[in-house]
Design a binder for these strands. Sequence first.
DNA 1: CCGTTTCATTGGGTTCCCCAACGATAACCA
DNA 2: TGGTTATCGTTGGGGAACCCAATGAAACGG
Lengths: 148, 148
Amino acid sequence: MSDDTPYAPSRIRALPSWLLGRAAARGHRLVADALATEGMRMMHHAVLSAVDELGPVSQAELGRTVGIDPKDMVALVNDLQKDGLVTRTPDPNDRRKNAVEISPAGKQRLRRTQQLGDQANAELTAALTPDERAQLITLLGKITAPER
Amino acid sequence: MSDDTPYAPSRIRALPSWLLGRAAARGHRLVADALATEGMRMMHHAVLSAVDELGPVSQAELGRTVGIDPKDMVALVNDLQKDGLVTRTPDPNDRRKNAVEISPAGKQRLRRTQQLGDQANAELTAALTPDERAQLITLLGKITAPER
DNA sequence: CCGTTTCATTGGGTTCCCCAACGATAACCA
DNA sequence: TGGTTATCGTTGGGGAACCCAATGAAACGG
């Protein structure tokens, strides 16, 4: 594009950080709206999905995996437990921990929310070819990688 | 990748919406931290930059350009005006509007914040080649485009 | 002239993020 | 063994970005 004109129209709109914010906002909106039909928020689904994958797991490890503040994790697991989607039992080996585990109802719910999430993501990337979508995922992976 | 195994390790982490959220969060953190050294937030810089490009402009149009809620725009312009970076004068042609204009101090501040923003974005995309960075920008543009 | 629209502003609300503290418990190590 | 250090769940406070609704004033359209 060779964009060395003195000032581009709306300079910030060409910055990765800005575009990322916009794209993320749209993605969040699409996914959140989809999940709302099941009465869940994005973080509910993320946690439920992580519990399903990790099996019985402590809240602290869940937080590290999904990247959620322990404070918010408490409320999230409260919600999921209240809806009977996960169980929270004291860990006999370490009485500080709660063993969070997905329930049959949770697995069922997860199946639906995963589908909703996939649909929303399909809509989000509707303007992209499969190749482009794969490229995007790769590039985003590199950006988020720093693996602190 | 043909990923039809029953359950992949952390399914959500492969979703564009999830990656976008993570990448955007990192970008926001980097830019916000950089701008904080000048006592500004991201939206301050965005508005200031837009005012600079558009010349005397109403708050409503600013909001439409940058994608900010009118409510928040009031507070933002208040801040910028309080710091003497923009002027807010009643528009003689349309007494409903405020003509927001950048001041010399605003231009000076903008020069620094633009540099800080560019630096932060360079760090954000440090793991990318120039080609990849251009690709990313193109792809993100397509995602945010729907142009509604 | 009158209904509709726009503008700036105020108000209310939600979600996600980050930091700090606490009691209880476990792990470490000298 | 005993004493420090670290972790876990929980509670607390706070900020930033986002969205919706309503107001009075002013402009616009037919």
